[in-house]
């Protein structure tokens, strides 16, 4: 049960219930779709990128609490970040959920993302947490085809 608590942190439950930036972005100039065929989770990520800076971001779609909260928290952190900074964030997040980063040491860079540290205890859920982030990477690279967790 204590492990379960570390997975379903309040931040995660809140973002799942009322996700931020949960809409289509009309003036987006980058977009990618992410799909996890194993559980049916599906998200669209929209970005407005100007001079390599993310001006705006939003997402749409459906999935489990972990995947939705992850997309929501991610979207709330991206505004104003350069492409490079966003890629760094993708990197630390990935390390965090696969257990390769110590959340205490990375606290400053992680901020709210530290709430996802518990995911590393649940290997079956790592893909849920990562889906939005894989999709973000594809959007940054402007790959408009579907990103699958199973490739």
């Amino acid at each position: 049960m204590s492990e379960l608590k570390t997975l379903y942190q309040d931040i995660i439950l809140d973002h799942n219930k009322s996700p931020h930036n949960f809409k289509k972005l009309d003036n987006a100039n980058r977009h990618a779709e992410g799909y996890n065929p194993l559980c049916g989770d599906k998200y669209d990520i929209y970005l407005r990128v100007e001079n390599d800076v993310i001006q705006d971001v939003s997402f749409e779609g459906a999935g489990c609490a972990i995947s939705k909260a992850s997309a929501s928290v991610m979207s709330s952190l991206l505004k104003g970040k350069t492409k490079e900074e966003a890629e760094e964030l993708i990197e630390v997040f990935h390390k965090l959920v696969t257990g390769d980063a110590d959340p205490m040491e990375e606290l400053e860079r992680l901020g709210k993302l530290a709430a996802f540290a518990g995911v590393s205890e649940f290997p079956a859920r790592v893909k849920c947490a990562s889906l939005a982030w894989h999709t973000l990477r594809a959007a940054l690279e402007n790959k408009d085809d579907v990103v699958s967790t199973e490739k």
Partner: peptide, 22 residues
């Protein structure tokens, strides 16, 4: 309001093994 995947993880903590997905 609760996605099958989350149900699966939570009830697994009670020792209950079910399948979630398609």
């Amino acid at each position: 309001d609760v996605h099958p995947h989350d149900i699966g993880t939570i009830i697994d903590s009670e020792g209950v093994a079910i399948r979630t997905g398609h």
